[in-house]
């Protein structure tokens, strides 16, 4: 088991393995998204209160979930990198940040587009769910700015890992904000007590979207880690040999 991880964490091995894995994540992911989007937009019935406006859930929930998932990759990568001095772990953190920022942006904007007709407002300052998600976006920006500010990769890895770990508090706040405090945002639908608060015809497309987005996220993350690894290892022998080999290694 340990050897398996050690081998996985070796940059050349991961670089080659990721190239093989990416289509296996992307193709099923895109198929699930195609089904989920079609069924969510056209097959699922309208909601008894919200009419068709609730269909925004099919992009809003996967984006919001991945905005937190990406952060956990970033923080976990930072922690593993700090404790075990594993180079690949820091590369995972650096690769996850721009993806996390993109999904956080999407969660905020699709939520705002949903809030306008339903709640009656694009944005409410002071709402704990909305505000903590916005802070999440600023944490991603801070992480990326910190990385680009430090030229020395090893130093940048350490400093940004510390920042990522401190910011985990906020992910916890995002998740529990609707339970701890009063909020305009409704509570958990999928994992609430007594099962999901959703009809099956609405629920299956949502699950397909969540799983599909996660797989595509995995593919996007794997590609960004490869780029990160290639850049970090640019002066190593394996990169030189790979590039000079007839097959190359793009």
């Amino acid at each position: 088991m340990w050897n398996f991880f050690k081998q996985l964490a070796s940059p050349p091995h991961f670089y080659r393995l990721a190239a093989t894995i990416i289509p296996w994540l992307a193709v099923p992911g895109l198929l699930l998204i195609a089904y989920g989007a079609y069924a969510g937009l056209f097959l699922a019935p309208e909601d008894y209160q919200q009419g068709d406006a609730y269909r925004i859930i099919y992009v809003h929930v996967p984006a919001a979930y991945l905005s937190m998932m990406a952060y956990m990759f970033m923080a976990l990568g930072g922690a593993i990198g700090l404790v075990w001095r594993m180079k690949l772990a820091h590369a995972v953190g650096a690769a996850a940040a721009p993806l996390g920022a993109a999904f956080t942006f999407l969660a905020l904007v699709t939520g705002s587009i949903w809030g306008r007709p339903m709640w009656g407002t694009w944005w409410e300052w002071g709402d704990p769910r909305l505000t903590s998600e916005l802070i999440l976006l600023f944490l991603y920006f801070g992480y990326m700015a910190l990385r680009s500010a430090i030229d020395d990769t090893a130093k940048a890895d350490k400093a940004s890992a510390v920042l990522a770990l401190v910011g985990v508090v906020n992910v916890v706040v995002v998740h529990f904000s609707v339970e701890w405090w009063s909020s305009l945002h409704q509570g958990q639908t999928l994992f609430k007590k007594g099962g999901p608060g959703m009809d099956a015809e609405m629920l299956y497309p949502l699950i397909a979207m969540i799983v599909g987005f996660t797989l595509v996220f995995g593919a996007l993350l794997a590609r960004r880690i490869r780029t990160e690894v290639l850049h970090r290892e640019r002066r190593t022998r394996w990169v030189r040999e790979m590039i000079l080999s007839p097959a190359g290694g793009r």
Partner: peptide, 18 residues
């Protein structure tokens, strides 16, 4: 001076709701 609507965490078809 401002009214906002809150919705709950349940989603269902109108027939089911009825």
């Amino acid at each position: 001076d401002k009214i906002l609507a809150k919705h709950d965490e349940n989603y269902m078809a109108p027939e089911v709701a009825a």
